[in-house]
Simulated assay, not measured.
Amino acid sequence: MPRRAAAGRGPLRIATWNINSVRLRLPLLKDLVAALAPDVLCLQETKCPDDLFPHEGIAELGFAHRLVRGMKGYNGVAVLSKRPLLLREDDPDWCGKGDCRHLGVSVDAPGGPIELHNFYIPAGGDIPDREKNPKFGHKLDFVAEATAWSAARPARRAVLVGDLNIAPLEHDVWSHKQLLDVVSHTPVETTALTAWQAKGGWHDALRHFVPADQKLYTWWSYRAADWRASDRGRRLDHVWVSDDLAGALTRHVVLKGARDWEKASDHVPVMVEIAP
């Protein structure tokens, strides 16, 4: 096995995972670290208030630096790192809800700090109509606010990751035609997400490696009796990098096998490697 460079040197590996309860799935983080050896791990849906976050168990995995923003029962984001972190204090409170859906940090990296944003976008409920479904309206408003924020401050040496709960491209879903009226792939959502990406100067890191005409999924529903056989997936988890880092992308991994782990999340971990 090749030796890893010392912490703070060499390529930067950033992973993201909707863990769907950090306390319930804490043992799985050991498997993730063994498979991906990330320098930085961003979690979503931690479902854990800050005072109950399992810092000790995560520190044992080598993540000496941890920033968390959580609440009881749902939502919650965390950034775990082997490299020093600095919290960004002035990022927005999206839609004025204080619902722990974003954590912005600065990560120590070769060539200078990298700005890293970890997002958990609202799922949006089941009905794609903001008048009939306030959850869908909240989702659209959140993305609109994030788009305006990004447009006002074009990204440089920056990475955005997370469960964005939208599969924007035709081959980000198992059936484009059948899912056009299903929340996560409706035209109003996909248009909004691609506008956020474009106006913020973001580059789609996963599609940097996997052409847009190839299927690419990161989520498979719990409802499937055999998720591999049906393979009705969606790409809900994303990694974007600022355009100035696009040329520094060296590798990506979608850890599909994690969907088979005991007590698995319905999302799988995703990682990109950057040589900034």
Rank of each mutant, 00 (worst) to 15 (best):
W149P: 04
L85H: 10
H102A: 14
L41K: 11
S230M: 01
R83V: 15
Y74W: 11
L249T: 05
I58F: 08
A5F: 10
F119D: 03
H102Y: 03
L169Y: 09
R69W: 04
K199E: 15
D99Q: 13
L216F: 08
D129I: 07
A264I: 10
R223H: 12
S230A: 13
D93R: 12
D126Q: 12
H208T: 13
F53M: 08
K47Y: 08
Y74P: 00
A59F: 07
R66L: 13
V22T: 10
L249G: 05
L36N: 12
S184A: 10
D172G: 13
L140W: 01
Y222F: 14
E56F: 04
A205L: 04
R234G: 00
A64M: 06
A198V: 06
E115M: 03
G200M: 03
G257V: 04
F63V: 09
W227G: 05
F63K: 05
D141N: 08
E262N: 11
E89F: 01
A158M: 08
S175T: 04
D231G: 06
A152P: 09
D99V: 05
G257A: 14
Y120M: 14
V161A: 05
A15Y: 03
A152Y: 09
W17N: 12
L160N: 00
S242L: 11
L249C: 07
G70R: 05
L24T: 14
G233M: 01
P113Q: 07
E170L: 13
L86A: 14
E60R: 15
M1Y: 06
S184I: 03
V253E: 14
A146L: 15
H238Q: 11
L164E: 04
H138I: 03
D260C: 00
W240L: 13
L85Y: 07
R223A: 13
L216D: 04
H203W: 13
G96E: 12
D237S: 10
L28C: 02
D204L: 03
W94R: 05
V77K: 11
L245N: 07
K82M: 06
K215V: 12
V107F: 06
V241E: 07
A151F: 02
L180F: 00
